[in-house]
Amino acid sequence: MRPFSYERASDVQRAVIGGRETRQGQTDAPVQFLAGGTTLIDLMKLDVLRPARVVDIKGLKAAHASIEATPQRLRLGALASMAATARHPGVLRDYPVIAESLQLAASAQLRNMATLGGNVLQRTRCPYYRDTSWAECNKRDPGSGCTALKSFNRNHAVLGVDDSCISQYPGDFAVALVALDAAVELTGPTGRRMIAFETLHRPPQGKPNVETTLMPGEVITAFEVPAGPWTRRSLYLKIRDRSSYEFALSSAAVALDLNGGAVRQARIGLGGMAYRPWRAKEAEALLVGRPLNEGNAMAAATAALAGARTHGGNDFKPELGRRTLVRALLQAAAMEA
């Protein structure tokens, strides 16, 4: 860990001023916001992130940690902890996919520490990114190459990758957000703006070191999830080697609006598969107007993984992803909602 100066920001204006030199997603960003710290402190110890200034924004909790569930929408303050959100009655009742995605992530301790804003910005678990002794990593050191392409890559992404980076987005909550058409509220030096959550994370496009579309100084202040006829019939299915405390090998966030036996609308996000939080719109479209049976679920899953590119160790992933999605769809269809 490199030396840094530590500062506390007690309101968002001070935070964005303090953070105006942030270059999100870049190892050499000279300023980093500190919230729960579960990613930042970890990666600073590993010498991957080397900020000269750390701006502690936990003081923003007072103004930016509330959770409001109304008939129209769910608004989540970005400084709310994962734990507080996962146990919120309105979230549990009306947005089970969100509650489950949080509940199945990390551990009780980490969920107490981690904030929602920090959680969606967590960095990949790619071992070649996290360990600076691997010389080649385009995300950490642009232009150096990608070790994962030719080394052990069991848990690397198969969707949304290119030859510059096949690292996987490791989170769960973001998969639920992307499925539910969430928006994210950003506060920056020039004020507030809302963007579609889907556009927060960038595709690699040869520049995997730039991970998000955040502007310098911008801090996530809230998430908004529109209520839909599908949000109550929603779930998050996470497949992993052990029963808990593990990143997804494969996951699916599914929300369904059913009309009798047929699908009126579907929302699908995939985790454990992709470079960034992944929305499977082709699969959603295939389901509309059709009964949710095994065959149609499989057709949708096939479409969802159609673009998969594998690299040896993760050859099994498209098949696991398809099966995960089929299981999640059938399970959601059987929910009492």
Binding site: R242, S244, Y245, E246
Partner: peptide, 8 residues
Amino acid sequence: YLVPVNAD
């Protein structure tokens, strides 16, 4: 390096 957790 996975070792069992309580839930396993």
